[in-house]
């Protein structure tokens, strides 16, 4: 194997390791995955600023088996893309999987979960956000009435100040008590 390719410089790798919850090996694996999505446009070596400039369109990322079935995939990519379009550079991509990795702390996870469910970006999870989430989750199988009922119940449970929407703190409070969240909010790559 004479043509050993330098995928990242040592510095880059160090930096990525510092910024994510990944080990060196995992970073390289993520890179491989990233390249496999759209091998045409992504070079093998990313020693310069390819990692932060070359983007892969959402349409391709969506096809990843890890995301393909996820009802929130569009929203997840939106969050992690720089411009909110859902197109990701390698760094964004890495960041995404770092957050979803098992090593990530729960505070970080909760923060991003809040961002994901806050569909209208108003820093609160309101009625519309919940209905959107429900629609995505159930493939619009619930009736409007049912969704309203669910919304009301959810507010009963989580809305402390009674303003009809969940702030981050309220969301955090609700999520922290959930036994499920930390076991399900993972994507393994």
């Amino acid at each position: 194997m004479g043509n050993k390719l330098v995928i990242f410089t040592e510095e880059q790798l160090e930096a990525y390791q510092d910024c994510t919850f990944f080990t060196r090996k995992e970073i390289l694996r993520v890179q491989k995955r990233f390249r496999s999505i759209c091998s045409g446009s992504v070079p093998k070596s990313m020693t310069r600023d390819e990692a932060s400039t070359i983007t892969v369109p959402f349409a391709n990322i969506e096809k990843l088996p890890e995301l393909k079935e996820n009802p929130f995939r569009a929203r997840i990519c939106e969050i992690f893309s720089r411009d909110g379009s859902g197109n990701l550079t390698f760094e964004d991509f890495l960041d995404m999987f770092s957050i979803f990795s098992e090593q990530a702390t729960r505070d970080t996870k909760v923060f991003y979960a809040f961002k994901i469910y806050d569909f209208d970006n108003d820093n609160h999870i309101g009625c519309d956000d919940i209905c959107t989430a429900l629609r995505l989750l159930t493939h619009s199988e619930l009736t409007l009435e049912e969704m309203n009922q669910v919304y009301e119940k959810a507010m009963e449970e989580g809305d402390v100040d009674g303003d009809g929407k969940l702030s981050f703190i309220e969301f955090h409070h609700v999520i922290l008590r959930s036994p499920e969240f930390f076991s399900t909010f993972h994507i393994r790559i």
Partner: peptide, 15 residues
């Protein structure tokens, strides 16, 4: 306790 909220926010297994 918070069955509805949890069902909304944590029901989906991202795995």
């Amino acid at each position: 306790e918070c069955i509805f909220s949890w069902k909304i926010f944590t029901a989906w297994d991202y795995m």
